[in-house]
Computed example of a mutant assay.
Amino acid sequence: MSVLAEGATINPTEHTEVHLAGLVFNLDTIIATVIASLIVIILGLIVRAKITSGVPNRTQLAFETIAKLARDQVEDSIGVKVAPFLVPVAMSLFIFILACNWLSVLPLHWNGHPILEPPTADVNLVFALSLLLFIWWHAAGARRHGGFGKQVVHTVKGHFAPFAPLWIIEEIVHLVSLPLRLFGNIFAGGIMVSLLALLPAYVFWLPGAGWKLFDMGIGLLQAYLFMLLTIAYFKAAMELEEERH
Score class of each variant (00 low, 15 high):
Ser53Val: 13
Ile51Trp: 04
Ile42Leu: 14
Gln60His: 05
Lys68Leu: 15
Leu98Gln: 12
Leu93His: 01
Ala67Met: 06
Leu103Ser: 11
Ile115Arg: 04
Gly44Asp: 12
Val126Gly: 03
Ile41Pro: 01
Ala49His: 05
Phe127Arg: 07
Pro118Asp: 13
Arg71Asp: 10
Leu86Cys: 04
Val87Phe: 01
Asp122Glu: 11
Thr59Lys: 05
Val55Tyr: 01
Pro88Glu: 03
Gly22Asn: 08
Leu131Asn: 09
Leu38Tyr: 04
Ala121Trp: 03
Ser77Glu: 03
Phe94Val: 05
Ala32Arg: 06
Val126Asp: 09
Ala49Phe: 02
Trp110Asp: 14
Ile42Thr: 14
Pro107Ala: 06
Gln60Val: 07
Phe94Tyr: 09
Pro12Thr: 07
Val87Trp: 02
Leu23Gly: 05
Pro118Asn: 13
Ile78His: 00
Phe85Gly: 08
Glu14Ser: 14
Val123Ala: 15
Ile30Ala: 11
Ile115Met: 11
Arg71Ala: 15
Trp110Leu: 14
Glu117Phe: 02
Ser104Tyr: 07
Val40Gln: 06
Glu64Leu: 13
Ile51Glu: 15
Ile78Phe: 00
Thr65Trp: 08
Val55Ala: 13
Asp76Cys: 02
Ala8Thr: 14
Ser104His: 08
Leu103Arg: 08
Ala121Ile: 05
Leu43Gln: 11
Pro107Trp: 10
Glu64Lys: 03
Val40Phe: 03
Leu86Phe: 00
Val89Tyr: 01
